[in-house]
Design a protein around this nucleic acid. Structure first.
Ligand SMILES: Nc1ncnc2c1ncn2[C@@H]1O[C@H](COP(=O)(O)OP(=O)(O)OP(=O)(O)O)[C@@H](O)[C@H]1O
Length: 657
DNA sequence: GCCGAGTGCGTTTTT
DNA sequence: CGCACTCGGC
């Protein structure tokens, strides 16, 4: 550690703010701080809470702490994202919130699940038809008004729908993503005993990537850091890139200073990651920001010819260049591994061309942030089964699987069934399935329903002594889902996905602390489902994915570092991304995003752009290189290290048209 | 209930 | 262009 880093680590207990430029070693400081708390200040490890941006970052933090503070202590520390930590708090104590109407088995609803609830509201309460209902915009509005301190304009109808939606969630014993944070804050406000518990449970709170915290998250930190006000936040306003989803840069800039007592601020400005040329390029970019932070970054490594601007004729050639260049650099440098190379882009849609090029070139690669696995029908079905077992009130999931595979419970039966349920006295929903005896259905439909409810009852019984994986295997067998999948045309492929999920469900659960946990039973099932709901784009099925080039958005690259970085599509309109009705703040965030991308590179940076790019499918649109490259290019030519400008000649690669 | 053909629409970033 | 979703025929 250098002097500044050490000073931050050794800061007295209280409110500490560390402004850490890219590559300045904020991870080291965080780890050093935890070790200091434990070793010097004798903080019990279990009283330490670390909030990270992804769960992967949390695991890595714990891993690196293991060497410093030992295995036992590392396990006891709580480390996770805001959402994971909040979910955990709600499971344990959420039922104490007056009128909350949820149990510890609540399901976490993602945007799709929420949309289903909204759809139900629009159709059943607002007289919309299945076709006319537009749940999407309504759900977005609800979500923003939940997480926004100043709710957006509210039409009457929205407010009414909001209330019905809330009711729907409650009846389903579910929270949506936004609720996880707001309900937790409400819990701490309304339940003094719970608040007191957590204040003692976590006496030391540390937050990474503080520049991207939302108002609600900040509120949570304020509450948890009481009564000592002992909180250690680390971040960099220049790397704030999540304003569009409610993050407030003001939290790190000014709010923290105002709200906490005697704040000590430390600045880390030595960049240990990148060569001087890369740091200069980054600075040339952040100069374009209207509100740069006061940090003045200094490189620790001399620069060379390690930044290049590359022009290609079109997006395909750009992609091909990147794939071949990646292969070449690994061939030429025996120390360079594919996993030390990253390709960054602005939009996920760019991944396709790039991936195609990597496949053609035979270069091992992995697209990070690809959530299509969990979007697959068979995977969603399996998860829905598990959810219903875990939380029988989960109507969205129940609707999904009640007739999958088909078992004679069609739409009309479901309608009659739910009409019948509405006539029943309100229950908490848990008795919903087993008591299907007296409803007015045909004998056939009734026996189908009874058989199903019996199946679910048995499965729930089995869940008490099974791991999620074993349970899943049992469900697949007794529902006949295996034959359903295997008999399909693409059965083998789809069955492989199911197998993958089973394997995942057999792995030991990963939690925000690693103290002993049951591997069987309903609680283990709940953890498994929660883990899936709260997966971040950084996490994937096969961890890390071996020695492969990583393809991801610049957003997903936050906090990572690579020997070589390619940035694809540095063109007007794409980087920085321009949409109509953009505010100045929005454009500033685009500049910061590019800054984040650039500063991921350790030794080599290639900024690529194409002269034309296919938008979606059809016409190739002409493209100009981004103005953000102008200052970099000027800086490269101005110095003694001339820009290694590469232009790719048109290839004669025949397009079979 | 299932499957295939046809239609319409979309690309900003994600917990 | 590719996909998600609908509708009509079986
Ligand atoms: N005192 C030091 N001496 C040498 N190398 C260091 C020192 N501190 C940090 N590093 C190295 O600097 C690199 C960047 O560290 P780290 O990942 O913590 O950056 P960071 O501050 O989190 O950056 P960012 O904000 O961009 O994510 C790492 O490779 C780390 O090993």
């Amino acid at each position: 550690l250098n002097d500044d880093q050490r000073a931050a680590v050794l800061a007295p207990v209280g409110a500490t703010r560390v402004l850490a430029g890219p590559g300045s070693g904020k991870t080291h400081v965080l780890i050093g701080r935890v070790a200091h708390l434990i070793h010097e200040l004798k903080t019990p490890p279990r009283e330490i809470l670390c909030i990270t941006f992804t769960n992967k970052a949390a695991r890595e933090l714990r891993e690196r702490l293991r060497d410093k503070i030992g295995d036992a202590a590392a396990r006891e520390i709580t480390a996770g994202t805001f959402h994971s930590v909040a979910a955990r708090m709600l499971r344990r104590h959420g039922d104490r919130i007056p009128g909350i109407g949820r149990t510890g088995e609540f399901t976490i609803y993602d945007a799709d699940d929420s949309k289903q609830i909204v759809q139900g509201v629009l159709v059943n309460k607002f007289g919309e038809t299945k076709k006319t209902a537009q749940p999407g915009p309504m759900r977005n509005w609800i979500s923003t008004s939940k997480s926004c301190p100043i709710p957006p304009m509210s039409h009457e109808r929205f407010v009414e729908c909001y209330d019905e939606y809330e009711l729907g969630l409650r009846q389903a014993n579910a929270f949506d993503f936004d609720d996880l944070l707001s309900a937790t804050v409400a819990m701490l406000e309304m339940c003094p005993d719970v608040r007191s518990y957590y204040e003692h449970r976590w006496s030391q709170v540390l937050v990474d990537e503080f520049q991207d915290t939302s108002t609600t998250q900040y509120e949570l930190i304020r509450k948890l850091s009481q009564p000592q006000g002992s909180v250690f936040v680390v971040g960099d306003a220049d790397q704030a890139i999540y304003g569009w989803r409610g993050a407030e840069v003001a939290n790190i800039r000014t709010q923290f200073d105002e709200d906490f007592k005697d704040v000590q601020t430390h600045m880390l400005t030595t960049n240990y990651r990148s060569t001087a040329t890369i740091v200069e390029a980054a600075q040339a970019v952040i100069k374009e920001s209207a509100f740069p932070s006061p940090l003045d970054l200094v490189a620790n490594t001399p620069g060379g010819r390690d930044v290049a601007i590359v022009e290609a004729n079109d997006d395909r050639e750009e992609a091909e260049f990147i794939a071949l260049e990646a292969r070449k650099s690994v061939k030429e440098d025996p120390d360079l591994r594919y996993s030390e190379i990253a390709v960054l882009y602005r939009t996920n849609s760019q991944a396709r061309v790039l991936e195609e090029a990597f496949i053609r070139a035979g270069v091992p690669h992995k697209v990070i942030g690809d959530t299509s696995f969990y979007g697959r029908k068979e995977i969603k079905d399996m998860i829905a089964y598990l959810r219903v077992v875990s939380n029988s009130a989960d109507t969205v999931s129940l609707n999904r699987i009640i007739n999958t595979p088909t078992r004679g419970i069609g739409n009309s039966t479901i309608e009659k069934l739910s009409a019948w349920i509405d006539t029943l006295p309100k229950t908490d929903g848990t008795e919903l399935l087993p008591s299907a005896e007296e409803m007015g259905l045909t004998t056939r439909a009734r026996s189908a329903v009874l058989k199903f409810s019996q199946l679910m009852a048995e499965t729930r019984e089995k869940a008490k002594s099974s791991t999620p994986g074993e349970l899943l295997e049992a469900i697949i067998k007794c529902t006949g889902y295996d034959t359903l999948v295997q008999d399909a045309d693409d059965g083998n492929e789809r069955w492989a996905f199911v197998q993958e999920l089973i394997n995942l469900a057999k792995e030991p659960p990963q939690d925000i602390d690693e103290t002993i946990q049951d591997r069987v039973g309903l609680e283990a099932l709940g953890s498994f489902l929660e883990g899936i709901s709260l997966l971040t784009s950084a996490e994937s099925k096969e961890e890390e994915g071996g020695d492969t080039v990583k393809l991801m958005t610049m957003h997903a690259s936050k906090g990572l570092e690579f020997n070589s970085v390619f940035i694809s599509g540095v063109e007007e309109g794409l980087i920085p991304f321009v949409r109509n009705g953009d505010s100045e703040d929005d454009q500033d965030e685009e500049v910061r995003l590019f800054y984040v991308g650039i500063t991921r590179a350790k030794r080599k940076l290639m900024l690529c752009h194409a002269r034309e790019r296919r938008r979606f499918g059809q016409s190739a649109q002409p493209a100009r290189r981004s103005f953000l490259l102008d200052s970099i290019s000027a800086m490269l030519t101005g110095s003694k290290k001339p820009e290694r400008s590469v232009s790719i000649p048109s290839t004669s690669r025949g397009k079979a048209t």
